Amino acid sequence: MNAVSPVVDAPSSGTGLVTAEAVALDLRPARLGSRAIALGIDILVQLALAAVVMMVVGVVLAMLPDSLVDDALVGAVMRIVIVVVLLAYPTIVETKTNGRSPGKAAMGLRVIREDGGPITVRHAFTRSLVGFTVEWPGLLLPFLTWAGSLATMIASDKGRRLGDLAAGTLVVHERRPVPFRFVPGMPAGLAPWAATADLSAVDDDLAAEVRQYLSRAQELSEPHAGSLQAMLSYEVGARVTPPPPPGTPPWLFLCAVLAERRRRSAAQLAAGRLVTERVLPGFGRTTRPFPAFPVRPASPSR
């Protein structure tokens, strides 16, 4: 049987992005909290880079003749260092890493285009230039532009800042939380039959398909849910002997088969560990004692 691809209702995309092939991208836009932490990490990296660059520049200036080093040269060098650290560095990093600066990489974020594609040097430079002038550090009216950038990000349904609006980009989460999916256990009354059934023909791939269906059955819409249940019941029923008791609903039949396979796997694992313990006592167990933490005696009651 080929891998089953259940048809489910399309989840709503947090970004609303649709590719040119009419494929909706289910991505979560990054909000103020995660982006603020990522920005803090990037600022620390930029400060460290600025310190290293200034150290190198100081050594180079110290090696030059005093007649060449004046206030104009020092001022020009300082401006170049600021541009390199605050404009060139983020542009190069985001371009080479496809939108993942050190702070964004630590927080699991990435900068993408509005159409979901990777950013180019034009997008990275525009973001860095807008940030350099009106956001962070914001050379033009810093406090006023900071408030404007913060208000723009809060008001945007996708958490976009001024640099994102100018460059046509947005920041999204690369990682998605995996929801807990409940898989039903052994149905009442089918345990005696399942214990004597031959399940050797039910391979891991088919069992994985059954597990996926049972864990997502509530998300499936009709008629897809019914047709998928019928397909899996027919495929599993052709491989299991003896058949389940007459009148067993397909749902309970699939639950019983999956629960019995899980029970037998756990029993085999426990038996294997028991044999290993008999042959190689203590194998796989740590021999280092855990440190004993001092416990303060309770004060006597008065």
Rank of each mutant, 00 (worst) to 15 (best):
N98R: 06
P187Q: 06
P6N: 04
K96W: 04
R211W: 03
F283G: 13
R181G: 12
L140F: 08
S299L: 07
K158G: 07
T287K: 08
S13P: 00
L199E: 12
D66Q: 12
D42T: 04
F125V: 01
P11Q: 09
L150V: 02
W136Q: 14
A298Q: 05
L144N: 09
I154L: 11
A197R: 01
E235P: 00
R264A: 15
T169P: 05
Q218M: 08
R35N: 13
L252N: 07
R79D: 14
T133P: 01
A24T: 03
V18K: 06
W251H: 07
L206M: 12
E21Y: 01
L139A: 09
V45F: 06
A217E: 09
Q229V: 02
A238M: 08
P249M: 08
E94Q: 12
I112E: 12
I43C: 12
A22T: 02
P245V: 07
R216F: 01
S227G: 04
S233P: 01
G282P: 04
G247V: 00
P184D: 15
T15D: 11
T241E: 13
R288W: 04
D70K: 04
I119N: 13
S149E: 11
R262V: 06
V210D: 13
S5G: 03
P223A: 04
V23I: 13
P142T: 08
R216E: 05
P65C: 09
G237K: 01
E174K: 14
V52Q: 10
L39C: 11
V279G: 04
G117S: 12
